[in-house]
C-alpha cells in the first residue's frame, strides 16, 4: 500500500502510522457533555468502503487525512490535516 504525503510524495505504507478515523478532527467543546465526549473518544463507524483516516508520516512529522477504500484498497488521495482542519 502506498500513500502520498503532500510534502514527500508517494511513499510505502511502512513510513506511516495509522491513528484512526478522521472523526477525531471534530473535537467537541469542553462543555458539550459526557455523551458527546464519549462518542467522540470511543465510538467509531466501521465502513466497508470509503473511509477517511488520520495517518502520521513518521519521517517528516506530517499528519494527513487519507481518503481510501477499505474494500477495494484504492487510495484516492491525502491532504495535510492542518489544511482540512482550518
Amino acid at each position: 500500500m502506498r500513500i502520498t504525503c503532500p510534502h514527500c510524495g508517494e511513499r510505502d505504507r511502512r513510513e506511516f502510522t495509522y491513528q484512526g478515523a478522521a472523526k477525531i478532527l471534530n473535537r467537541p467543546s469542553p462543555d458539550a457533555g459526557n455523551d458527546a465526549w464519549a462518542d467522540y473518544v470511543h465510538l467509531r463507524d466501521n465502513p466497508a468502503g470509503e473511509t477517511r483516516d488520520m495517518w502520521y508520516h513518521d519521517p517528516c512529522g506530517a499528519w494527513l487525512v487519507v481518503h481510501r477504500n477499505s474494500v477495494t484498497h484504492e487510495v484516492y488521495g491525502s491532504q495535510l490535516a492542518a489544511e482540512v482542519a482550518r
Binding site: 502510522t17 491513528q19 477525531i24 478532527l25 473535537r27 488520520m54 502520521y56 512529522g61 506530517a62 499528519w63 495535510l80 490535516a81 492542518a82 489544511e83 482540512v84 482542519a85 482550518r86
Partner: peptide, 14 residues
C-alpha cells in the same frame, strides 16, 4: 511527539 504534532496540526492549526 506524535501527539503534540497531532494537536498542533489537526486540532489547533490556528
Amino acid at each position: 511527539m506524535k501527539h503534540l504534532e497531532f494537536v498542533a496540526q489537526a486540532l489547533r492549526p490556528d
